[in-house]
């Protein structure tokens, strides 16, 4: 008999929204590529990543709604929360930019996702552990795909090298937020629900550094992020999220109470 997690319900609800929103927002961003990719094969690959992420978000937000116990399902959470109620990190809401920018954002996220999901497969929360096990296989493929593109673009042409280096330098400031540990995380760690972000950080740095080197790119350095590049987990987002949600939620919100 697995002991029930002892974390307060609202902390677990909060944590599940973080996991779910990261994947919902990034999946949404990836879906913006559909039909516009650099080559047909990659269009299909990008859509697969988007589908995986939105699928993971669906499971996580459904569980979040159940944990909350107020009758909200995944759609209620996705379509009827305001931007300040979203709990995704800043990295995933950044606009796609060019294909290289999307690759860098995806790679930085994917490495984190693999490490986090691996830890979550050992969660004391059975439902979450199950979702993590299924998602981990997907994430392992995602990082293989985005990692391969890091090498191809970093060590491709002068132009591609210049472009991804610029994207890496730009997006780097959003990465420390992935490892911020606040009261919610501490409750998750002590209940055995989630792994310690600080432990993940070391592994993340090793893997990312290795790929950056093999891609002949310059590591942006370990400097502390500016204060503006954190706080999204509490609702302090960039301006980009509001526009993303305006588009995502428009149809659903134009017809309150309708089924689709």
């Amino acid at each position: 008999m697995v002991p029930l997690p002892t974390a307060p319900v609202n902390a677990l609800f909060e944590y599940l929204q973080r996991l779910g929103d990261d994947r919902l927002i990034l999946g949404h961003r990836m879906s913006e590529w559909c039909g516009h990719g650099p080559i047909l094969e990659e269009d299909i690959a990008t859509a697969n990543v988007a589908l995986d992420l939105i699928g993971q978000a669906t499971m996580l937000l459904r569980l979040a709604g159940e944990v909350e116990g107020k009758g909200r399902d995944e759609d209620a959470l996705a379509y009827w929360r305001e931007a300040v109620e979203f709990r995704n990190c800043l990295l995933v809401e950044q606009p796609n930019g060019d294909f290289g920018h999307t690759v860098v954002r995806q790679f930085l996220f994917d490495v984190h996702a693999v490490l986090l999901l691996d830890g979550l497969t050992r969660s004391t929360h059975d439902g979450l552990a199950g979702i993590a096990a299924k998602s981990l296989k997907e994430a392992k493929y995602h990082v293989r795909h985005s990692g391969d593109w890091m090498l191809k673009l970093g060590d491709g042409t002068d132009e591609s090298h210049r472009r991804v280096q610029r994207s890496l330098d730009d997006l780097w400031r959003f990465t420390p937020e992935l490892f911020v540990t606040d009261a919610i995380d501490r409750e998750m760690i002590s209940a055995g629900i989630a792994p310690d972000p600080a432990v993940l950080q070391e592994q993340w740095q090793t893997i990312v550094r290795d790929v950056i080197e093999r891609a002949t790119l310059q590591h942006p350095g370990e400097a502390a992020p500016p204060a503006s590049a954190r706080g999204a987990r509490q609702g302090a987002h960039s301006e980009h999220l509001g526009h993303l949600l305006a588009e995502m939620q428009i149809v659903a919100r134009s017809h309150p109470g309708a089924t689709w």
Partner: peptide, 9 residues
């Protein structure tokens, strides 16, 4: 890349 694309396609 051929393996990856084959997987996705």
């Amino acid at each position: 890349q051929a393996i990856q694309n084959a997987r996705d396609v």
